[in-house]
Amino acid sequence: MFFVDKDTIIAGVIAFFGAIIGGAITLVGVVLSINHNEKLRIKDDLPDKINHIENALNTLGKIIENDLVFESGTKKFITLTNLFNIECSSDFDRFTGTVPKELKKDFIYIDSEAYRMYLKFKSNVQLLGMNLLNNAELKLHDFRDETIGNDNTDFMDKTNIVIMQEDVKFIEKRMELNRFYLKQNREFAFALHMIYFDIHTQLTLKHDQLIEELDY
């Protein structure tokens, strides 16, 4: 009777450990299957992601090569009106607002890393634009103080401006202001070009990375 009980216990232990091993093998198989399916899903998503990257690269490339060629120095992002107000050009609105907004439509469908690139790019562009406008406004404020003082009503009056333009000091200060804005436009174009060039470079590397992943 003792030996029968012992055989029963041994059989029970073997069955117990067999069940554990079988369950572990099944679990491993399920995990491997899930991982394999996830890899297939990621790989299936790659062509769409690459397409979005290429769309963004195409947009950025055209801007860098054609629109933001800073060597020419001909772009005007801010100008001074005849009533001595700062006016943003359509180029300013396009490169600090419209283009970043359009690029979001592609970046958001790539991955989290690419979207973080976009957010940093957008922030840098907006900050650059704000600095340009702030510097322009401060210089204009100095110009007003040095020519007519703090009387903004007289300054904005068209008749008074025409009269002031006959003043030599006023003309010299106006020329100085124009030179300042010209310099600001050139520096802004250069900095903007570098921001666009930087994200184009980062996105090109991301594009190469995803193409390599297609081979796995």
Rank of each mutant, 00 (worst) to 15 (best):
Y115P: 00
V30W: 05
S33L: 07
D208G: 03
D91Y: 06
E176T: 15
N178M: 02
I108F: 13
M130Y: 13
G129V: 05
I20K: 07
N85Q: 10
V168L: 12
K39Y: 04
S33M: 07
E176V: 05
R41P: 02
T147H: 07
M1G: 14
S90R: 09
V162Y: 04
Y181M: 14
K104V: 07
L214V: 08
F2N: 13
M156D: 11
F188S: 00
G73V: 03
H200F: 12
D198L: 02
V99F: 10
A114P: 00
I86H: 01
T74K: 15
A15E: 14
Q202C: 06
V168N: 04
M117I: 02
D7H: 05
L192N: 04
D44I: 08
G97T: 02
S33H: 08
N35E: 05
A15L: 10
F143W: 09
R116M: 11
V168W: 10
N82S: 10
N124H: 07
S72Q: 15
V99K: 01
A24F: 14
K122Y: 10
G29H: 03
I171H: 12
D7V: 08
D93M: 15
Y109W: 09
D5F: 06
D48Y: 15
K169C: 00
G18V: 04
D215H: 09
I78A: 01
K104C: 11
K75L: 06
I171Y: 12
S72N: 15
L128D: 04
N150H: 11
F3W: 05
F16G: 08
V31T: 05
V28C: 09
D45Q: 15
S90D: 11
K43L: 06
L57E: 03
L140V: 08
D67Y: 00
E38F: 11
E187Y: 02
D45E: 15
I148Y: 11
L46V: 06
N35P: 05
V168Y: 15
L210D: 07
E71T: 02
N185C: 07
Q126I: 14
D198W: 01
G29T: 09
N135D: 14
Q165S: 10
I195K: 00
I21T: 12
I25G: 06
I199S: 00
S33Q: 07
L210I: 06
L40D: 13
L128Q: 05
K104H: 14
R186V: 03
D44S: 09
